[in-house]
Amino acid sequence: MSVVIVDSWVDEWATQARCSDQDPDALFVRGKAQHDAKAVCKTCPVLAQCLAEALDNRTEFGVWGGMTERERRALLRKRPDITSWKSALRAGMASQVKAD
């Protein structure tokens, strides 16, 4: 049995984002409208890359990677030990293995 590590990380992710063809203002909303913005993220193929970008750059506004600014701030407070969210999320994706 061989084990293949799958690394599906995409560095040039923005053009592949589910929201790339939508009005950007729809992602920078407040209140209940954030639920609609987050719904776009649920099936996005580059959700982790988007979230890592926002967390690593401490992006203050908008829905990124399926999280509101409040949710991202809470995550950053909860995990101050993570210095690179890109590395952490990429490693998590790569840990998925496929056995032949």
Rank of each mutant, 00 (worst) to 15 (best):
M1L: 08
S2A: 10
V3Q: 08
V4P: 08
V4T: 15
I5A: 14
I5Q: 12
D7Y: 01
D7Q: 14
D7G: 09
S8L: 12
S8C: 10
W9G: 05
W9C: 08
V10Y: 03
V10R: 05
V10H: 05
D11P: 03
E12G: 05
A14C: 13
A14W: 15
Q16C: 15
C19K: 03
C19M: 08
S20I: 09
S20M: 09
S20A: 08
D21F: 11
D21P: 11
D21N: 13
Q22L: 15
Q22S: 14
D23G: 05
D23M: 05
P24H: 12
P24I: 06
D25P: 06
D25Q: 07
A26P: 06
L27P: 04
L27A: 04
L27C: 10
L27V: 06
R30C: 03
G31Y: 01
G31W: 03
G31Q: 02
G31V: 02
K32D: 13
K32M: 15
Q34S: 13
D36V: 11
D36M: 13
A39D: 13
A39T: 07
V40H: 09
T43S: 08
C44L: 01
P45T: 06
P45L: 03
P45V: 04
Q49R: 04
C50Y: 00
C50T: 01
L51S: 01
A52L: 02
A54P: 09
A54C: 01
L55M: 08
D56C: 03
N57L: 05
T59K: 12
F61S: 11
W64A: 03
W64E: 01
G65M: 00
G66L: 04
M67F: 06
T68P: 01
T68G: 05
T68E: 01
E69R: 06
E69D: 14
E69L: 02
E69G: 10
E71A: 10
L75W: 00
L75C: 00
L76H: 02
R77A: 09
R77G: 02
K78I: 01
K78H: 10
D81C: 00
D81N: 02
I82M: 00
T83A: 14
T83Q: 13
T83N: 15
S84C: 03
W85Q: 00
A88P: 07
A88T: 12
L89Q: 02
L89D: 00
L89G: 02
R90D: 06
A91K: 15
A91G: 15
G92D: 08
A94W: 06
A94V: 09
A94P: 10
S95D: 15
S95P: 14
S95F: 10
V97M: 10
V97D: 04
K98I: 15
K98Q: 10
A99R: 14
